[in-house]
């Protein structure tokens, strides 16, 4: 297939034009995000059920989380979302170098988020505020405080895994951008990972108040 304007290199044979392909890709990505929402939805359900049962314990246990670090991480994740959005805008206005810079910044913010998360985890492991049967901390009043920490670790852990997965793909996009693969003609993969990254941010926006602020 010749690389002509009517049939560019990225157009697959079963699509009639680039717009149809792009719309399909975005639509497919949104359906994938839908499955992500439902995946975390299960955890939010577990959170809601146990919080309703043990409200006192949840309140006491949430005080054990570091509200300041949580707030800082929220700022960092929102900033990374901003840089991600600006990276896509960079490609839309055909400034690939600018886009690469913003993608790099997104990676840096994501890494800082994980480092802060690591220190939070380490502190909790040190105190024995661990999930389930490994829970040895005694400073939280109320019944079954280990369940709060189970939910905390599963939710933030799954979220953290999503950050790591996103970082790997963003790094790949960064390399491709530097190689000049994307332009304002074709940047669908970056747009898709952008959507994913914003979703990871969205989930944190709910996780943060639920776990750190209201317990």
């Amino acid at each position: 297939m010749a690389n002509t304007p009517s049939h560019p290199f990225y157009l697959q044979h079963h699509f009639s034009d680039a717009q149809q392909q792009k719309d399909s890709a975005k639509f497919g990505m949104w359906i994938f995000l839908l499955t992500e929402i439902l995946l975390f939805g299960g955890l939010f359900c577990a959170y809601a059920v146990f919080r309703a049962w043990n409200h006192e314990m949840f309140y006491n246990a949430h005080l054990a989380l570091d509200r300041v670090l949580g707030t800082i991480n929220t700022f960092i994740l929102i900033t990374s979302s901003l840089t991600m959005a600006l990276a896509i805008r960079g490609l839309q206005v055909n400034k690939a170098r600018q886009a690469a810079l913003y993608l790099g910044a997104t990676l840096v913010f994501a890494a800082i988020f994980l480092v802060i998360k690591y220190f939070e985890y380490e502190h909790k492991i040190h105190l024995g505020q661990l999930p389930g049967k490994y829970y040895t901390y005694t400073g939280v009043a109320g019944t079954n405080p280990h369940i709060f920490f189970s939910i905390y670790f599963v939710m933030t852990g799954l979220h953290g895994l999503h950050i790591v997965g996103g970082m790997i793909v963003i790094a790949m996009m960064l390399v491709n951008t530097l190689r000049g693969k994307y332009s304002n003609e074709y940047y669908t993969p970056v747009e898709l990972i952008g959507l994913y990254w914003h979703l990871v941010d969205l989930i944190w926006i709910y996780l943060f108040p639920f776990l750190y602020l209201i317990g």
Binding site: W30, L33, L34, I37, L38, F40, G41, F44, C45
Partner: peptide, 9 residues
């Protein structure tokens, strides 16, 4: 689709 996700959760 986004709203469907939220409403089913």
């Amino acid at each position: 689709i986004f709203l469907i996700g939220i409403s089913f959760v």
